[in-house]
Write a protein that binds this DNA or RNA. Structure first.
Lengths: 144, 144
DNA sequence: CTCCTTATTGCGACAAATCGCAATTACGAT
DNA sequence: ATCGTAATTGCGATTTGTCGCAATAAGGAG
């Protein structure tokens, strides 16, 4: 486990909330997996270790961690997935046809964020977008 | 009803699918509402008119209409909402704190789409994004 | 107008997600 | 180390969303 260094417990307490074994298990599961996880996968992984941990608790932990921005929640191809919030933002380009996703650093989003703040007084948090579209391969061998 | 002019039926048939009363009712509901609707709201609205129309049929109609891009599906503040696809794209800036959404024309996204096509061979479909962040009011009277 | 094909619906069962409330427990204060 | 309080959990009930399959019906062909 490499995420102990990030001191999630400290961040949670600093905001007046509590670190609990249940929340720790959810964080452990997300850390072990590394990438995206559907809510159900998190439930399964957590119950691998603690079979009697209630499902509702996992769902609430995920919501809670998202609210604190320790975890990101993204809709990818009709499914909601969770992931540990990374230091540097990263994004996905999801193909509507084949469902495959490629990574994207999202560098160009900086300009958008600046503009939104200036023109709409809105501080956008663009940590983990999933943009829908059609990838190159599918554009040629049209499946839709 | 003003959406008859758009000839959804024709578009559906042209692609080899069928227009059905059930799908028409879903379109009517979305048209009558005008804005976003959660799936459950669509079910309720449709059943107002046809109480025995099955839930599963509404869900499948929504999926179907999204696949044809006659309807958009967006995750806003943890909830999935549906809306009739507009002629010109429009987007929302959703405040993570108070949940309120403001419209945004998304003009600046054009540059992003161009860049994604050139650098990643990805044809992004940016019709209806929901960007998360914090609005001006909430940034001052910190609630989180 | 009638027939045929097959897309679509309805249904019942199942799985996933949410909610209210009583019981528990984290953790700052003493 | 113990206490008190309020955040958090567990549970059961309910709601929301999905699936497989048999029955139905949309719409092109004749």
């Amino acid at each position: 486990m490499s995420h102990d260094e990030r001191d999630f417990a400290g961040q949670i307490r600093q905001l007046g909330y509590r670190m609990t074994p249940q929340r720790q298990l959810v964080l452990d599961a997300l850390c072990a997996q590394g990438g995206h996880m559907a809510a159900q996968e998190v439930v399964t992984a957590v119950q691998q270790h603690s079979p009697f941990l209630n499902r509702a608790t996992v769902y609430r932990a995920l919501d809670f961690l998202c609210a604190l921005q320790l975890v990101t929640r993204t809709e990818m191809g009709g499914q909601v997935v969770y992931e540990l919030a990374e230091e540097q933002p990263h994004h996905h380009l999801v193909c509507r046809v084949c469902g495959q996703a490629q990574e994207w650093d999202g560098r160009a989003l900086g300009a958008i964020a600046t503009q939104l703040l200036a023109e709409h007084d809105f501080e956008a948090e663009l940590h983990h977008l999933a943009l829908s579209g059609v990838c190159g391969r599918c554009r040629e061998g049209r499946n839709p």
